[in-house]
Nucleic acid binder design. Structure first.
Length: 760
DNA sequence: CCTAGGATGTTTTTT
DNA sequence: ACATCCTAGG
């Protein structure tokens, strides 16, 4: 195994650790991902497990994809069958298979945060509770927190302490809201993000009615010979509880990698306590702990600054990161008078770095605490014609028109999905006004029915009867062909029948055109989903139904777009930057009340978390680190004056280039911003690969897929010319392993059921 | 039943 | 500043 030579001694020790529980505490830039991927590659190479017996949990789809790609490179084709993905996506997949055991339909809907909030405010209204007292976000956070602590509605009511806390905050009836919310989700066949975790936990606790065994837990314990968890410091109590249930008690093959200093998801219930608990919980089973402290990413000033800053936190696992790279540029601090000037100075510095240090756009990142800060940078980068890409913020899938279409599709798949139904029932306008809706809502509430059912029963008066029928008929084709027709066909039928397309076409304003483009892009995306024949997972039945599409798309974020080889400056929140690295990093908005956030001021714990966030931010930099702040900035529509962040004062002065002095002199005259609003640069999401020859579809003649045999030379519409190495899988799900010339001898696994291949 | 205009709350971070 | 919610008036 020559790949072991690419590791240092400690990394190698971690990679080849014996069976049993392993904890890898890994500082930033210490090769954490490398250790994790090589561990998997090693398990495969040593034949300790087959790919589909390994479960690797990550926090983002992107991390999962990268991991798969890297393993593929080291270990070969089998990596495609790994169970690698986010907690949410892996569990959604398991839930889909097992839904019936906990009283959910296979095609359950995933409620996003907006759906959750909308349902909660409906409930709050129904209960006649004052809206100001029961603000939706607060209630949502509380319920989410309860779930992450494994507190069911039943336990919540019984817990007097919790009720006392709520009463103090004048929110005594949260327990009732929680109960109703849970019931309503279940009736709608819907799970929110937390449910994807909680219901999995529930599933693993389910006993067989006769044998009284935990048969589902057993099933997955037996399946997964090895479980690996990335970013373990960001797991919450619930996630850890699930992991513990999944770990096979015979071998305890649980391998977790994390860094307590980079725990930045406390607001989501993540707790460093998990790392400490892990050590305790698995001590009896011979836990092996490895600490990786050698930093291969950043120069000495950056590493020293990181060490110094994190030392201000009150508790942590002791470790000093050592720089491998040696001396480098000191850290630069830039002061600006306004937020706009801050942006201009950053852009100036970017131009300079591109010239002086020969950096490319993609070597550079601008990191901020809140997504709202991106705007001024966007405007200034635009002005200098520097390519950039904003991650996060309003994602493609959150745009109104996209959500509208998805809501239609959701109703098609699951008519009980009340939130989706409410969204589309009167868009485009078709006469469902307040009066009708009130009647339907009242009936639904009185008889505990989903909206869809109430819709047919409510007495709405003559004219509305037809309206209801017309509305329902939009989904007729979809409902009749749900099982056999593919997602793209159904989606197109719905777009036409619903009048959505007509509505969008009528709007000829630039924004309207962009909306239409986005809807078309989504349709293209569905088409691509249907046409994609590369094998993702053999374990789940590969199908092209709308239901499958929706479950994928519900967990998709904008972070996941993959255009890594294009040359753009990266703009993203610090949270989003975790795990990434750039030659030059600008951490902007270094001001009190912004970073650290004003929300964190109330508790020292929260400020510590902000500090860890800052630690994450600065350790993204390889060579150049610039920290900027503005004396004043627009926030909430008015000018705000902030003082420099306390974190700046915590830096080691000897590593700061311009310590003490105010950098930059006089603020320059305020230029008017371009004012040009950017209407979404959501390019069509198409092919996954970029460097492949386009085959002319006109001359392309796909052969019948059962004719494909090992050894054949074939042509693929997307990947070009390749050779079939071998074929496996059952008769129904034949999978060909093909090596394509264009993609650098990389092997791809193609599902022949969906494949478009031409025999040469 | 729909629209416009005003009031109101909201922004920390993500799956 | 922006989005959402509510109310009055068409």
């Amino acid at each position: 195994m020559n790949f072991l030579n690419e590791l240092n001694d400690i990394q190698r020790e971690a990679v080849v650790a014996n069976d049993g529980p392993v904890l890898v505490v890994a500082g930033p830039g210490s090769g954490k991902t490398r250790v994790l991927t090589y561990r998997i590659a090693w398990l495969l190479a040593e034949d300790k497990a087959k790919a589909d017996e390994i479960l690797a949990l990550t926090f983002t789809n992107k991390a999962a994809r990268e991991m798969k790609e890297r393993i593929q490179r080291v270990a070969g084709e089998s990596a495609g069958r790994l169970w690698a993905g986010t907690f949410h996506s892996i569990f959604a997949r398991i839930l889909r298979t097992e839904a019936a055991h906990i009283g959910y339909p296979t095609n359950f809907t995933v409620y996003d945060t907006d759906d959750t909030k909308s349902l909660l405010s409906t409930i709050i209204k129904e209960m006649n509770l004052p809206r100001e007292q029961y603000n939706v976000n607060g209630v949502r956070a509380r319920i989410s927190w309860a779930k992450s602590k494994l507190i069911t509605p039943k336990l919540y009511v019984e817990d007097e302490e919790l009720r006392r806390e709520d009463k103090q905050k004048q929110q005594l009836y949260i327990y009732e809201i929680y109960a109703r919310y849970t019931a309503r989700c279940k009736m709608a066949g819907a799970m929110d993000f937390d449910d994807l975790l909680y219901r999995t936990y529930e599933l693993l606790q389910t006993k067989h009615p006769e044998t009284k065994e935990y048969f589902i837990a057993e099933k997955y314990r037996n399946r997964f010979k090895y479980i690996l968890v990335d970013e373990f410091q960001d797991t919450n109590t619930l996630q850890y509880a699930i992991i513990r249930k999944l770990v096979n008690p015979e071998n305890h093959n649980i391998y977790v990698v994390g860094d307590d200093a980079q725990s930045i998801y406390g607001f989501r219930g993540a707790t460093i306590q998990n790392i400490l608990d892990f050590e305790q919980d698995y001590k009896p089973f011979g836990i092996k702990t490895v600490k990786l402290v050698q930093n291969y990413r950043s120069t000495a000033p950056i590493v020293q600054a990181a060490n110094r800053v994190i030392a201000f936190n009150r508790q942590q696992i002791q470790k000093q990161i050592r720089s491998e790279k040696g001396e480098g540029q000191k850290i630069r601090i830039v002061r600006a008078m306004t937020d706009d000037e801050e942006a201009r100075r950053v852009v100036d510095a970017i131009l300079e770095q591109k010239n002086r240090d020969h950096l490319q756009n993609k070597d550079i990142a601008i990191l901020y605490r809140t997504n709202a800060q991106s705007r001024s940078f966007e405007e200034n980068l635009l002005r200098y014609d520097i390519k950039y890409k904003i991650f996060g913020g309003v994602s493609f899938y959150q745009r109104k028109e996209v959500k509208d279409l998805i809501a239609y599709l959701r109703v098609a798949v699951n008519p009980k999905d009340d939130e989706a139904l409410k969204r589309v029932i009167n868009y485009p306008k078709r006469g469902f006004g307040k009066t009708s809706m009130d009647k339907i809502e009242a009936l639904a509430a009185a008889q505990q029915l989903p909206f869809w059912d109430a819709l047919g029963l409510a007495q709405l008066g003559g004219r509305m009867e037809q309206t209801v029928l017309d509305f329902k008929s939009i989904f007729k084709e979809a409902h009749e062909n749900m099982a056999n027709a593919d997602a793209a066909v159904l989606a197109r039928s719905i777009v036409l029948e619903s009048g959505l397309l007509r509505e969008l076409k009528e709007d000829t304003t630039p924004e309207g055109k962009s909306r239409l483009e986005n809807v078309n892009a989504l349709l293209d995306g569905i088409q691509a989903f249907v046409e994609d024949d590369t094998l993702i997972d053999i374990e789940t039945l590969p199908d092209k139904t709308l239901a499958t599409y929706l479950q994928n798309v519900a967990l998709m974020t904008d972070m996941d777009s993959d255009e890594s080889d294009q040359d753009y400056v990266t703009l993203m929140s610090v949270h989003a930057a975790k795990g990434l690295e750039f030659k030059s990093v600008f951490v902007v908005g270094m001001e009190e009340d912004l970073f650290p956030s004003f929300m964190s001021k109330e508790s020292l714990d929260a400020v510590d978390e902000e500090r860890r966030l800052f630690y994450v931010a600065i350790t993204r930099a390889e060579q150049l680190l610039t920290l900027t702040y503005a004396n004043s900035r627009y926030r909430f529509g008015k000018m705000q004056y902030n003082s420099p962040s306390r974190f700046l004062e915590e830096l080691p002065l000897d590593q700061v280039e311009n310590a003490g002095q105010v950098f930059g002199g006089e603020p320059s005259a305020k230029k008017t911003p371009t004012g040009a609003s950017v209407s979404g640069n959501f390019s069509r999401r198409t092919a996954i690969t970029n460097t492949v020859p386009r085959i002319d579809p006109a001359t392309f003649q796909p052969s019948p897929s059962d004719a494909i045999q090992a050894g054949m030379e074939v042509l693929h519409l997307k990947f070009g010319k390749g050779k079939v190495l071998h074929i496996d899988g059952g008769a129904q799900n034949r999978v060909a392993t093909i090596v394509f010339e264009a993609s650098g001898a990389e092997e791809k696994r193609i599902m022949l059921k969906f494949a478009k291949l031409q025999i040469l």
